[in-house]
Design a protein around this nucleic acid. Structure first.
Lengths: 208, 208
DNA sequence: AAAATAATCAAACTACCAGTACGATAAATG
DNA sequence: CATTTATCGTACTGGTAGTTTGATTATTTT
C-alpha cells in the first residue's frame, strides 16, 4: 500500500472517529460521553481510538478546530459579502449569536471560556486560533468603516479591535446567561435585548 | 451542650474545613485538590468532611459565596464612597480587575464563566447571586449618572444595566486572555489596554 | 501462495478519585 | 455510669481515562 493510500485511510479513520464523537458530544454532552461510547459508536476498538488520538481531550480539540474553521468562514462571508459597514456589523453579530445558540459548548471553547475537558487535569492553554483570526477579521471590518468614514479616522485601530471584540462577546455572553431573567425584569426576550445592545454599541462606534 | 454552643462548634468546623479547602484550591488548583487532601490539611477525617459538606462542589460553592460577598462589598464601596460618577466608574472597573487578577478561578465562577467543578457531572445552573446584586449596583450607578446629568436621561435604564455590565466584563475577560499578545501586536501592556478600553467605553456612555 | 509485517481487536487491567459504609473510639450529656 | 453523639480510620463502590497484551485479521513482500 502506497504512502498516499495509507495516508488517506488514516484520514478516513480519523474522520470516522471524529464524526462519531461529534455526534455523541452534541447529543449526550462531552463529559457524559466516554471513550468506550465513542469506540462503540464509531465501530472501532478502544485501542484503535488511542492509535489515532492520544486522549479524549485530543479528540475534543480536533472537533473544536473544525468548528473554528466553520465559524471563521461564516464571519468572513459577513464582512466580504456586504459592502455596507453597518450591514457587516449586524451580520457578524447575528452569525456569532447563531453559532453560540447552536453549539454553546464549542462556542465557549472557541471564545476561551474554558480550558479543559477533564477537570482532573490542569488546564492547558491552547493557542488561540479563533482569537487571532477574529482579530484579523475585525481589523478588516474597522478599516472598512474608517475608509467609508463611518467611524472616526483618528481612532487607534489596534486596541479598538480588541475593544470591539470585548463588547460583542461580552454582550452575547451576558445575554445567554441572563436570558431567563430578561423576560421578568425587562420586558424583552433575548433577541430583543441583543438587538438593543448591538445597536447601542454600534451607535457608540460610528460618528453621529 | 446547649444548642447555641453546638451551633458555634459546627460553624467552627465548617470554617476550618472551608479555609483549608480555600488555601488548597488557591495553591494547587481546585481540580488538583482531592477530598483526601482537604481532610488531611484541615485535620479531619474524610467522613467528617462529608458530615459538614455534601460534596466537593458544595465546598467550592460555599467558598465562591464568600468571595461573592467580598466582591459585592468592595463594589458597593466604590459606588457609595465617591460622589463623582466618573470616579465611581473607574473605581468599579479597577475593583473588578483586581479581583480577577487575584482570584481568577473564583472570578470566573462569579461571572458564570463555568458551571461545575467536576466535569464528569452535568453542570448545575446555580442562582446567580453576584449577577443579581451586581445588576442592582450598576443600576444604582447609572441612576446616579443620570441624576447628575452625566448620561442621557432618556436612556432605557434596565437593558442598559446589562449592556454596561456586558461591556465591562467582556473587556476584562478579553484583556486577561490576550494579555500576552497585547505587548507584541499593540505596544501596550494589559493595564494600559484596560485603561484605554474603559475610557473609550465611558466616553461612549456620557453625553459630550 | 507463503512468510512477514502492520492494523485492528477484545478484554483484562491500572490508576485515580468522589462518595459511602461501617465498626471502633472518644467526648459530651444526663 | 450509661447513653447518646461526634469523630475517626479504613476499606469499599463505582465510574472512567488510559494501558497492556496477546490474538486475529488484512496487507505487503518475496
Amino acid at each position: 500500500m502506497g504512502a498516499r493510500k495509507k495516508e488517506a485511510l488514516e484520514q478516513f479513520n480519523r474522520d470516522n472517529i471524529l464524526s462519531a464523537a461529534k455526534e455523541l458530544f452534541e447529543t449526550k454532552g462531552v463529559e457524559q460521553t466516554t471513550m468506550d461510547d465513542i469506540a462503540k459508536y464509531a465501530d472501532y476498538s478502544k485501542s484503535t481510538i488511542y492509535v489515532y488520538f492520544k486522549s479524549k481531550e485530543d479528540i475534543y480539540n480536533s472537533i473544536v478546530e473544525d468548528y473554528t474553521d466553520i465559524l471563521i468562514g461564516e464571519l468572513e462571508v459577513c464582512i466580504q459579502d456586504s459592502s455596507d459597514f453597518e450591514d457587516s456589523y449586524y451580520k457578524m453579530c447575528d452569525c456569532l449569536v447563531n453559532f453560540e445558540e447552536k453549539y454553546p459548548k464549542y462556542y465557549a471553547s472557541l471564545m476561551g471560556e474554558e480550558k479543559t475537558t477533564n477537570s482532573r487535569k490542569k488546564p492547558i492553554l491552547k493557542d488561540d486560533k479563533v482569537g487571532r483570526e477574529l482579530t484579523g477579521l475585525i481589523k478588516e471590518f474597522l478599516e472598512k468603516g474608517m475608509a467609508t468614514s463611518k467611524i472616526r479616522a483618528d481612532i487607534d485601530l489596534q486596541p479598538t479591535v480588541l475593544y470591539v471584540w470585548s463588547a460583542i462577546s461580552g454582550i452575547i455572553q451576558v445575554a445567554e446567561r441572563k436570558k431567563d431573567e430578561l423576560d421578568e425584569s425587562l420586558n424583552m426576550n433575548k433577541k430583543e435585548y441583543l438587538r438593543y445592545s448591538f445597536r447601542t454599541f454600534y451607535e457608540s462606534l460610528v460618528r453621529r
